[in-house]
Amino acid sequence: MFYPNSPQTSPQLTQIPYGQQYAMMQRQIQQPYHPFATTEPQARLYPYHYQGPIQQEQGGFITQQSTAASPQYVQMRVTPVDQSIMSGYPNQTANGSSSSSFNYNIHPQQQQQQQQQQQQLRHHAMPVGSVPLQDDRYRKQLIVNYLAPDVTSTDLHELFSRFGELDGARIIYDKQTNMSKGYGFVYFCHAEDAKEAVERMSGYEFHGKWLKVGYSTNPLNIVPSNSSPYVHAGSRGAAG
């Protein structure tokens, strides 16, 4: 039997160049792979992502010199942007860049009308829970959420009447099932009393439920100042 490094198959040491006398086997001759043993700084910083320098080929596509990437890492192929796409944008300079302001050559009167329309939209648009300043009635009506099913309009009136005089209180019921929808409205005579009720009743436990109280901004629920107070009856038909 002959071994790869046996004296019968191995040459004389004098015939082997210096430095390879003890590297006779194939696994010894093959050098191990060192990912950080390279002179390129990109490979030292990113050993798993770097795959060699990027070269520009004919046709405008950018390719990489090395083989496919590892399945664990996804390499994105980048193509140059066609400058003709950006030619339609206004205020574009000769080098292809555009300024931040756009001039669509709008007539001054049209621009003024658009600004007025935007101001009107901001004036009428009102986020949930906010209180408008032009109508004091919005500051007097509250919406009470997360009410228990057994709470009546009379219970709601008695709960909030300790903060001040009320114009009314009612629970909203479903017309088909005649069941409470879980929320109601309270109408105060003074805005200061309503503000105190919002601050003190939010998070209050009532009939096993934690109440959420806020201003009601729905104009359909506003009680006119010259109208008669609501009837605080315990029956659902009268309260709904």
Rank of each mutant, 00 (worst) to 15 (best):
D150F: 15
R236F: 04
S98C: 04
L220S: 03
Y48L: 10
K195I: 11
V81R: 14
K195H: 10
S235P: 14
A23R: 13
S225I: 11
K181M: 10
N178K: 03
S161V: 11
I16E: 14
F160D: 00
S225W: 09
S100N: 13
H207E: 02
A125Q: 04
M86K: 15
S153M: 15
Q119D: 07
S70H: 13
Y46M: 14
A94F: 10
S101F: 11
F2V: 15
S161D: 12
V131C: 07
Q118Y: 12
Q51W: 03
Q21S: 07
P7A: 07
V144Q: 01
N5E: 06
F61H: 13
V186H: 01
Y215N: 01
T79M: 07
P32R: 08
Q42N: 12
S227P: 07
Q15K: 14
M201G: 03
K195L: 14
A68W: 03
Y22G: 14
T67M: 14
T9I: 07
Q119T: 11
R236D: 03
T152R: 10
Q8V: 12
Q26H: 09
A94L: 09
N226P: 04
R122F: 04
S84H: 05
Q119C: 14
G19D: 05
L159M: 12
H34G: 07
V213P: 03
P132W: 02
E192S: 08
S228V: 10
V198C: 08
F163M: 02
Q134N: 08
T67A: 09
R27Q: 04
E196R: 04
P127I: 04
A69C: 14
P35G: 06
G88M: 07
L166W: 00
G59K: 15
Q30P: 13
S87G: 09
Y18I: 07
S66Q: 09
Q21N: 06
A197S: 06
S98D: 09
V78Y: 09
G164I: 01
P219N: 00
L13N: 10
G184L: 00
F163A: 01
T39K: 14
A169M: 00
P41H: 13
Q65V: 04
Y50W: 06
T39Q: 14
F102T: 10
Q118D: 07
Q113P: 07
H157N: 08
T14C: 08
Q72W: 04
Q116T: 07
D82N: 14
V128P: 13
S84Y: 04
Q112W: 10
V128L: 10
V231P: 11
A238N: 04
V213E: 00
Y3W: 05
L121E: 04
S97D: 06
D82T: 11
F102G: 12
R137F: 03
S101M: 11
N95Y: 08
K181Y: 02
Q114I: 11
Y33M: 04
I29Y: 04
R122G: 05
R122A: 05
M25R: 15
H190A: 13
F102S: 08
E158D: 14
G168D: 02
A37E: 09
S227L: 13
F102V: 11
T152L: 05
L166E: 00
H124E: 04
S180E: 01
Y215W: 03
Q8M: 05
Y33D: 06
L13T: 13
G240A: 07
P32M: 03
Q113M: 07
S87F: 05
R44L: 08
D150W: 15
P224C: 06
P53Q: 12
S153N: 14
A37G: 06
M86W: 09
Y183C: 01
Q118W: 11
Y73P: 15
T93V: 10
M201D: 00
I85Q: 11
Q42F: 06
Q110W: 10
Q56P: 11
G60R: 13
L156C: 00
A194W: 00
F185D: 00
N145F: 01
